[in-house]
Simulated assay, not measured.
Amino acid sequence: MSATSAPVLEPAETVSDLSARRGHSPAQRLQHLLHRRPALSPLAVLIIAIVIFSLVNARFYSAVNLSLVAQQTAVIGSLAVGQTLIILTAGIDLSVGAIMVLACFIAANLVYTDHTPVPLALLVAVLVSVVAQAINGLLVTRIKLPPFIVTLGTFNAFTAITLIYAKGQTITLNPGSGLLWTGESFLIGNFRVTYGVVLMAGLYLVIAYALRCTAWGRHLYATGDDAEAARLAGINTRRVLLSAYLVAGLVIAVSAWILAGRVGGADPNSGLNANLESITAVVIGGTSLFGGRGSLIGSLLGALIVQVFDNGLALAGVDANYQVLAVGVLVIAAVSVDQWIRKVKA
């Protein structure tokens, strides 16, 4: 047999790699690439959107406007961290925004009415968020209720509790209050960055490390991908699912602090659409609604895409209704791409 009768595989090259390199069409190779790197799709969309909106209106890429986009992303971007954890387990959480507003209002009220020290008020906000998510997690893991139904019910419950507790009032805190620290800013060159944006970035770094470099993160992905297979492999899937909700509770408490700095206190009607906006960011960011595939960087890109589209279309003079339409089309396109990617074959 001649030396050229069969391809020679490098030590690290598998048969499937060779097939992907030689036997697949360009579309199939793209499908494989997006399956391995789900964040590439939203990154491409974000770059294209920035280029187009910069050409439409030169004010878009000004330091002032880009700083505004970053500040607008902080609340939903941080909330998307917690939402990503839930969606990675093949669940969905419709209550994250309601819990965030409740925690924010309780903390602000403690500082404003009872003159509670800010660290203690923040600790109470953490306790409220974690307990609320523990309720969600226990209903899902112990009683085996669908996450969609559970969080739809608790969304209404937590929203009602906030409105009853607030009695129709808003709270405006004095500038300089530690609870408003996340709304303060500093300059990096010509860019004005709030501490809320920095806190959001810190959330992404910490949780991304946990997902990528710890056994907990690997178990979370495995549980979302195939809960039964994960259980047979020795993973306590109920504990993993519950931990995802509890960690999301911690993230929501941080989001509540960022929200307080953003609105200058607390408003029971703030964040009304935060639940759906966080899901939108995660889905556009390439995290699969079927669980087990996705990344936090994708969720951040998704949150940025939503804000870039809103800001860019506004600067272009497009009616606000069309801005909502554009986001809706993006969500449908993202889910369609996810369905296509999930059909990948070796």
Rank of each mutant, 00 (worst) to 15 (best):
T116H: 02
A260V: 12
L79F: 02
A227K: 15
G189S: 01
V331E: 03
R231Y: 10
Q31M: 01
R212A: 14
G292E: 13
A160E: 09
L246Y: 00
R239T: 12
A230P: 14
L123N: 04
A222C: 09
R36M: 05
L85E: 12
M1A: 13
L55V: 08
L205I: 13
R212L: 11
S41H: 01
L242V: 06
L18P: 00
S185E: 05
G265H: 12
V324Y: 10
A210M: 13
I48K: 02
V51H: 04
A346D: 15
I207P: 03
P147S: 12
R192Q: 15
E277H: 00
L85Q: 08
L94G: 08
A108D: 04
P147K: 07
T182D: 07
A3G: 04
N65E: 12
A244F: 09
R342A: 14
A6H: 09
W181R: 08
P175G: 06
I99H: 00
A166R: 11
W181K: 07
G196Q: 04
V126P: 07
P42C: 00
V111H: 06
N236R: 15
V329D: 04
V130A: 02
L55Q: 03
A74C: 04
L304Y: 02
A208D: 14
L259W: 04
R293H: 11
H219L: 00
L304C: 05
E228D: 15
F155K: 05
I341N: 03
I235K: 07
A70L: 15
T84E: 10
L180V: 12
K345G: 10
S62D: 03
F186N: 03
L325C: 06
A320E: 05
L272Y: 06
G137H: 01
I76P: 08
R212E: 15
S336N: 08
G291A: 11
R238N: 13
L296K: 04
R192A: 13
I87M: 15
L9T: 09
V118R: 03
A132F: 06
F158H: 02
S278R: 07
A230W: 11
R218Q: 13
C104N: 15
E228V: 13
H24D: 08
H35C: 08
T287A: 11
A98N: 00
E184K: 13
N109K: 15
V150M: 11
A333T: 01
A166N: 14
C213E: 12
